[in-house]
Structure formats: structure tokens, C-alpha cells
Design a protein around this nucleic acid. Structure first.
Lengths: 208, 208
DNA sequence: GTCTATATTTGGATAGAC
DNA sequence: GTCTATCCAAATATAGAC
């Protein structure tokens, strides 16, 4: 009898159409806001009827979920590609933060989907969320290698990252008013943890 | 002829109903998310027909705008009430940041409305936005009195505030994991600007 | 897999009687 | 000012022919 064909052309085409749908979805949310995704418009821009989308995704939230997974994967890939971590701890921390802020600022809809929860009914599926979790764990290890292993200091560092990101995107979208501050912010942080290491105790230094 | 009545009972009642509508609107967005405000549900919870709302607000966005104005005013009032600014600059900065983070964390829907832009068609009216602007200017003056007058350092300070806020609300809602870090963050920041003042130049200090 | 047709829900907003 | 009645638009989702 005949063997199974090596390539499944049908599956390939299916995947390609799925990708096309997602690409159109990204364009739509980038243009009109994350919450404004509409299956009608989406189908229309790729020359389909709205109902045909259901051959590729079970629901609107399934589309959001696929987008979430894509975004999280982009984070992993771009980090691997663009961020050859320097050996020097201080420079490594700067590189991490620079990457994070730039990645977020590059696409505010993606940022909103990955890091905020503004879509009323949506939350990522366990499979999609795992990408983000693994990612965060890896970041933790990297920071540990830079000497940031104290959990509160890790929290402070992430707050620095999201703060610069948030301000940049909210108050100077497309500019670099807060991006410019990244290096100085990291130096401030690094100085702080270095001082702390020298005089531990309660974590407070005398005022003068 | 008869004089004008001193009190306009009709206007008073109108204002009271407006307030009642807004209170119900806040409850709804706190429960279901800012974007999920629905005029039908809103009218229903206060025992009205949806169309009756139009006697008080011209549109859904007019309701959002009134909520925005309320939130901004609450910020002003609560700041005035709860935050007797200490004389010591460091303590004053801590008080400012503590107030900001706690105010935001107390109501994430309000935070989203005031400080983020997640409602597709909405932006505050000039009148409502002015409350926020005046507020921000006042914050600038306060920080200037604390020795933070360099604009980039002001930006860094605000980033610290939004970062702690964002992390607290996103990753530990109802807790205090990042609230606990406020004092230390401000000390770190204050140490930084103090050092900078001692050795100006390019704003960078030698690494060791 | 795609289409037509349609169900169903929900939303914001208006007209006109009372 | 409030109601009833309705309009209109848009949304998600399903059924069934081809």
C-alpha cells in the first residue's frame, strides 16, 4: 500500500493561513488599539467571511491567545538574537533593561497584551503563559549572575524596568526621553546594591 | 413680584442623581473592568431605563469624562489631606511616592482611567485634563523644593513611582510586595542625586 | 474550507407619550 | 424627567449548502 506523504500540504496551508490571520490581527490592534480587535474587520482585510475564521480559531479569545504566544516567543527570540550579554555585570544589567524597554516601546499593543490585563474576558492559556514564565525564570538567573539575587532587589530592578517603560510609552511615545535614562538608572541601582553588599545589616544606610 | 428662591431644589436633585450614576459606574468598572462599562447595566442597577441616563450625560464618553474628573480631583484632595509634607527632603520624597503608589493601588480601574489610555474612543476633555495638569505642575514644584529640579532626574523619579505602582498592581494586587520597597527606592534615588550634585560633569561616575 | 444566511446578544442612542 | 418603544449598528457565533 501507499506510504504516508512526507509533507502534509494541507497542514502547511492551514498553518500559513493561520499566520496570515494573526499578522492581520496585529496590524489591526496596532492601528486601533488592542481592545478594538473585530472579527468582521479582520476577516474583511484578508478577503474572508467572518465565519471562515472559525476554521482556524475557536473564538476571538483564541486569537488573542495565539497572539500572546507569538509575542512571548518574540521576546525570547529577540532577546537571544540582540542581546549578547556582556561579561561585566553592570553592562549586562544595562543591556537587559535596554532590551526590555525597547522591546515594549516598539509595540504598545503587544506590551498591553503581554504585560497588562486590559481585555475583560481574556487570560492566556497555560501553554501560552508558560512561555512567559520560563522567560521570567531565565531573567532571574541572569540577574543572579549579575549579583542581584536578593528577591527584593530583583523586584526593585523589575520596577525600574517597567517604570521606565511605562513612562516612555505613556508620555513620549516614539521618543527616547526615558530610554535615555536607562544607563543612569542602572548605574544608580548597581551603586545601591553594591553599597548594600558592603554594609549589610537592616538594609538602611545612615543618612549622611 | 416674587424673588428667586435661594436654593434651586431642581438643580440639587439633578446633581444628586448625577452623583448616584457616577457612583454606580465606579462600582461597575471596579467589578468588571474599566472597558466593560455598559449603559444598560448601569441604568439597571440604579433602577432607571437606559434612555434616562441621557438626561444627565450626553454620551458614554461623557460619563467616562466625569469619572476622570472625579478621579483627578480625588488625587488632589487625598494628597492634601493625607500627605503633610515633611520638611526633610528625603522624607518628603518618600511621602510623595508612598502616597502615589497607595493611591493608584487602591483602585486599579481608576488608575487605568487616569494614567493609561486603554479606552479606544475616549480622551479627557480639556477641563478635566486641566485638573491633572495643575496637579503635575504642583508635584514638580514640590520635587524642586526637595532638590530635584533637573528635568531628567524628575523623569527618573516619576519612572520609579510608576514602576513600583505597575509591579504592585500587576503582580501582587492587594499585597505590599512593592509597597515595602518604596522607602529603599527613594533612598537609592536620593543617594544618587546627592552624589551627582557633589561631582557634576557628564553625570557619570567612574566605575570604582 | 469557504460561503450564505442567520441566530443571538449587546451595545449606544433617539422619538415621543405621559 | 422618566418611561415605552424602537432604531441602528456592531459584535460573536452557528447551521447548512456547495
Amino acid at each position: 500500500m501507499l506510504g504516508e506523504p512526507v509533507r502534509d500540504r494541507r497542514a502547511e496551508r492551514h498553518a500559513a493561513t493561520r499566520a496570515e490571520i494573526l499578522e492581520a490581527a496585529w496590524e489591526q490592534v496596532r492601528a486601533n488599539g488592542l481592545a478594538a480587535l473585530s472579527l468582521r474587520d479582520l476577516a474583511r482585510t484578508i478577503g474572508m467571511q467572518p465565519s471562515s475564521l472559525y476554521s482556524y480559531f475557536d473564538s476571538k479569545n483564541a486569537i488573542y491567545d495565539a497572539m500572546y504566544a507569538q509575542g512571548a516567543q518574540q521576546f525570547v527570540d529577540e532577546q537571544k538574537a540582540s542581546m549578547r550579554t556582556p561579561d561585566d555585570p553592570l553592562e549586562a544589567l544595562k543591556a537587559v533593561l535596554r532590551f526590555f524597554v525597547n522591546f515594549c516601546a516598539a509595540d504598545s499593543a503587544r506590551y498591553q497584551l503581554l504585560f497588562q490585563r486590559t481585555i475583560p474576558g481574556f487570560e492566556p492559556s497555560p501553554a501560552s503563559f508558560k512561555i512567559s514564565e520560563d522567560n521570567l525564570a531565565e531573567l532571574g538567573e541572569l540577574l543572579a549572575r549579575c549579583g542581584v539575587s536578593d528577591p527584593p532587589m530583583l523586584d526593585l530592578f523589575t520596577a525600574l524596568g517597567t517604570g521606565l517603560t511605562d513612562q516612555q510609552m505613556s508620555n513620549d511615545p516614539g521618543g527616547d526621553r526615558w530610554v535615555r535614562l536607562i544607563d543612569e538608572a542602572v548605574e544608580m541601582f548597581y551603586q545601591h546594591i553594591t553599597n548594600k553588599a558592603r554594609k549589610p545589616g537592616k538594609g538602611r544606610r545612615p543618612r549622611s
